[in-house]
Computed example of a mutant assay.
Amino acid sequence: MTDKANFTLPLVISAGIHIGVLVILALGVDFSEKPKPQPQASAPAVQAVVVDQKKVAQHVEKLKADKREAARKEKARQDELELKAKKARQEREREQAQIKKLEKQRKQKEIETKNAAAAAKAAQLKEKQAKDKAQKAEADRKQKEKERKASEEAARKAAEKRKQEEAAAKKAADERKRKEEAERKRKAEAERKRKAEEQARQQQEQMMQDALAAEQAALSQTRNKQVMSEVQRYTSMIRATIQRNLVVDESMRGKSCRIFIRLAHDGFVTANKILSGDPVVCRATKTAINKAGRLPVSTEPDVYNKLKEINLTVQPEFN
C-alpha cells in the first residue's frame, strides 16, 4: 500500500500542473476576436512546465529505482534469513538424530541389563522349582502310599459291605418274587371274576336286547298293519274323491288311466302325471283332480309318507 501511494502522489502533481497550464491558456484566449500571433514572451512559461514535468518523471524513475533496490535488498535479506533458518534446522535435525541414537543405545543397554537380570532370576527360579519339584515328588510318594493303604482298607470294607448288600438284595428279591407271585394270582383271580361278571352282564344285556327287539318287532308289525290299513283307507278315499269329480260317458266304459299324484301335508295336489291308460279317461281324470284341488290325506307322519307320492289307477264307474 505504501509503494502505491509513492507512485500516486507524483502522478497527481504532474496531472495538476498540466491541467493548470491548460486552464491558464484557455482563460487567456479571446474567442470573440480573430486569432493573433502569440507574443514570444509566453515561451518561458511553457518551457517551465515542460522542465517541471521532466523533473517529475525523473523523480518517479528515481523512486522506482529506489523501490527496486529496496526490494532486491529485502529479497537478499529474506534469502539470507531462509538460508540461516535452513542451516539451523539441519543442525537441529542432526542434534535430534544424535539424541535419538544415544537414546536408542541407552534403551538397548537397559534391555540387556534387564535380560541379564531376568536370566539370573530365571536360573534362581528354575533351581527353586527343581527343589520344590523334588520335595513335591517325595510328598506325592508318601501320599500315594498312604492312599494305597487306605484304598486297600476301603476295598476290604467295600467287599464285606457288598457281600452284606448282596445277601440283603437276594432276600429282598425273594420277598419281592413272593409278593409278585401273590399279586399275580390275586390279579388273575380278579380278572377271572371280572370276565365272568362281564360275560354274565353281556348275556343279560343280550337277553334284554333280544326281548326289546322282539317287542319292537311286534309293535312295528302291528304298526305297519295299522299304517297299511290307513294307507288303503285313504287311498280309497282319494279314489272316491276323484270319482265324484270325474265326468264320464259311455265311451269310457271298461277303460282306465294310471296316474302319478304328489300331495302336500294338507292334501293339496302339487303335481300329477299320466303314466298310462286311455287318453279320454286320463284327460277326465286330470280334470277331476284339478277340480278337487285337495285330496284326503292323513296327519300321521308315517301314513302321510306313504301317501305323499302315489300311483293310482282310476276306472270310471257306471250306475
Rank of each mutant, 00 (worst) to 15 (best):
213 A>M: 10
213 A>R: 14
214 A>Q: 07
214 A>D: 07
214 A>L: 07
214 A>G: 09
215 E>I: 08
215 E>C: 05
215 E>N: 11
217 A>S: 10
217 A>R: 15
218 A>Y: 11
218 A>S: 13
218 A>V: 11
219 L>C: 10
219 L>Y: 08
220 S>I: 04
220 S>L: 13
221 Q>K: 15
222 T>E: 15
222 T>N: 13
222 T>W: 08
222 T>V: 11
222 T>G: 10
222 T>A: 14
223 R>W: 06
224 N>P: 03
224 N>V: 08
224 N>T: 11
225 K>W: 11
225 K>G: 14
226 Q>F: 12
226 Q>E: 14
227 V>Q: 02
227 V>L: 04
228 M>G: 12
228 M>F: 11
229 S>Y: 07
229 S>A: 14
229 S>W: 04
230 E>H: 05
231 V>D: 01
231 V>T: 00
231 V>A: 02
233 R>L: 07
233 R>N: 10
234 Y>V: 04
234 Y>L: 07
235 T>C: 02
235 T>Q: 10
235 T>D: 09
235 T>N: 07
235 T>Y: 00
236 S>G: 15
236 S>V: 06
236 S>I: 09
237 M>V: 04
237 M>S: 13
237 M>L: 15
237 M>K: 03
238 I>M: 15
238 I>E: 15
239 R>N: 12
240 A>G: 06
240 A>I: 00
241 T>M: 11
242 I>W: 00
244 R>K: 13
244 R>P: 02
245 N>K: 01
246 L>Q: 06
247 V>C: 06
247 V>W: 03
248 V>L: 03
248 V>K: 03
248 V>M: 04
248 V>F: 02
248 V>P: 00
249 D>G: 06
249 D>K: 01
249 D>V: 06
252 M>T: 01
253 R>V: 05
253 R>F: 01
253 R>I: 04
254 G>D: 03
254 G>C: 05
255 K>W: 04
255 K>H: 02
256 S>F: 06
256 S>T: 02
257 C>H: 00
257 C>W: 00
258 R>F: 08
260 F>S: 13
262 R>W: 12
263 L>A: 03
265 H>T: 12
265 H>Q: 14
266 D>Y: 09
266 D>A: 09
267 G>A: 12
267 G>W: 02
267 G>Y: 03
269 V>M: 10
270 T>M: 14
